[in-house]
Write a protein that binds this DNA or RNA. Sequence first.
RNA 1: GGAGAGGUGGCCGAGCGGCUUAAGGCGCCGGUCUUGAAAACCGGUGACGCGCAAGCGUCCGGGGGUUCGAAUCCCUCCCUCUCCGCCA
Length: 446
Amino acid sequence: MIDIKVIREEPDRVKKACADKGMTVDIDHLLSIDARRRELETEFNELRHQQRQAGEKIAKAPKEEKAVLSKEMGPIRDRIKAVEEERASVDAELHELMLRVPQVPHDDAPVGHGDESNVELRKVGEPRRKGDFGFEFKDHLALGESLGLFDFERGVKLAGSRNYVLCGAGAMLHEAVLRLAWDIMLRRDFVPLTVPVLVNERLMVGTGFFPLHRDEVYLAERDNQCLVGTAEVPVTGLHCDEILSEDELPKLYVARSTCFRREAGAAGRDTRGLYRVHFMDKLEQVVLCKADPEESAKWHEIILLNSEDVLQALELPYRVVEVCTGEMGQGKYRMYDIETWMPSRESYSETHSASSFHDFQARRLNLRYRTSPPVAAAGSRTAGKTGRKVKSEIHFCHTLNNTVIASPRILIPLVETNQNADGSVSIPQALRPYMQGMERIEAPAS
RNA sequence: GGAGAGGUGGCCGAGCGGCUUAAGGCGCCGGUCUUGAAAACCGGUGACGCGCAAGCGUCCGGGGGUUCGAAUCCCUCCCUCUCCGCCA
């Protein structure tokens, strides 16, 4: 949600944002609904005022007059009812439209509608192509087969396509990357959380996934709840409907969750392997900070670097791209992806996504903070007397998030990059403590 | 799952159809007094909407109803607590 005042005052800017993000919202219609809503609001206020004054009069009037006066209020009552009804429907329509209006992106965000418009910011590490290995390259499916790391057939038997079972060293590796990432984030003073993964629909609207991406989410309709596709949902929503105090910001959180994705729009795409699956485990970092563009930009950089540190610890080559307006999604102000080199795909492929929303999510979640009034100069006893009254203000927070690690997708580059001529897979140093000291994964003796 | 009790401002808590523009207390802020502080006393202290403003209105868990008028009565949903049952 954006501030409706921005739409009233700068409709063209909002229309441009719609065009740049490839979205269609009838801004002019929205504005006419908004105007009607304000008319009704004013009429309602006046009518209620009359009614309350009349009520006071009736209460004080002698008994015999009460009936007469009461009767006179009939038409007012009826009119209020009519206005209330129209207001309710106008409110609902306006709200529906507002939920579809995009955040206006940062001026420097690249404008465009496809991956090719994304801008590469930096590359770290040396990518290895299939031919660079000096022996016959195996993709993660082949390695998984020979080393017994993954069981796709049984995954499908249990739960249909895009499901899998991680086995033995495969399951250990999955757990190891998550635990390594967890420890890295704890060292950066992010507060660890465990959160519900089956949440109220309200949170999906609040974080911006609904109504536009409802298809991509598993619904538990009997209970009006949904399975989250990321811990971003419960963590960003943690303080919804609260007014935090400025001095407790920023809130830095990290949470692991299983993430459920229907992949409705991706039928037939990436159907083999661990790349696009219906469930995964992901460690997500979330920042709630004050509504200062410089402050949130700073945190955006920090959460990006946190994730790069994890990839560097894993010794995986990656690049960072700034995502263009057409790819960034409705609520985002600015977005960076980290793409990790995947030898079998012969490309950098998305493994992380760092987003800044400004107050888009906070408005929907009713997530606010109160500014702390400036402290009076030390020793000035009369400061309160002479100084004018400084009022604290209430603002919507800025929210940001980034993947710390998502597995099993990250296992693709991990096993492919570290394979050896003998078919074994070496385990990067940083993971060994989480792998019972194991240095390499070898085919089970059978 | 069964039975009962509740959900009121930052917190506690009164109110159970119209002097409530929500009592009272705690907390917080400002002031008086004081070298400073504490105590005491005085004053202030919510959110949201409309309006240039004065101001007006909305909000007593959510929604609906009764009424000239609802925190207060009725219906319904949600949540919390207590006891019982079940259970990792």
